[in-house]
Simulated assay, not measured.
Amino acid sequence: MLVKVIIKRNVREGKEKHFFSLLKNLRFNAMHQKGYISGETLICAENTNRVVVISKWESLEDWSNWKIDIKRREIDARLGELQDNPTIYEPYVFSKYKAAAEQGFPPPLQKQRL
């Protein structure tokens, strides 16, 4: 089941350069984790200190394993020192996959025999 994780952060004024350097390091490490598919970083057009990271994972278990990884927690703690508020993590599953699985249908990306 594919998972997208929405991560919201508020960067403290004047800490942007260091923040984005650490964020890049975090992404680099995530790319080597089991189940990592992709990620993107969005900066709010109306408030450039608001940052959203969207990462895609093969499963909720893969994301959960990365979230508790010691290296990730170390970098995340350093990012937290550069933020105004705590980080918000919101994992989401694709509704069509969840609904199909609950009904016993094969995953939508799997070819079905007619």
Rank of each mutant, 00 (worst) to 15 (best):
W57M: 00
W57A: 01
A101G: 06
F20K: 00
K24Q: 13
G104Q: 08
V93F: 12
D69C: 04
N65W: 01
S95Y: 09
A45Y: 09
S64Q: 12
N47P: 03
K24Y: 10
V3Y: 01
M1P: 02
R9W: 01
W57S: 00
W63S: 00
V52H: 03
M1G: 04
S95W: 09
M31I: 12
I43F: 02
L82E: 01
N47R: 12
F94V: 06
D84V: 14
R72M: 03
L22S: 04
S21L: 07
G104D: 08
S55W: 02
S59G: 07
Q33K: 15
N65Y: 03
I43M: 05
G39M: 05
R9G: 00
K15M: 13
E61I: 12
D76P: 00
D76Q: 11
V93H: 13
K67A: 14
K15Y: 08
W66E: 00
N49W: 06
K67N: 14
N85T: 15
K71S: 04
N49I: 04
N10A: 09
E61D: 15
E16G: 00
D76M: 09
M31G: 15
F20H: 08
E58W: 04
V53W: 00
N85G: 04
V52Q: 07
Q33N: 12
L109M: 09
L82R: 02
E58L: 12
E81D: 15
G14I: 07
R72F: 05
C44G: 01
E74I: 09
F105R: 11
A101I: 06
S38H: 03
I70V: 14
I75K: 06
Y89T: 05
V52I: 15
D62T: 09
E46I: 11
A77M: 09
S64I: 04
V52T: 13
N29R: 11
L23S: 08
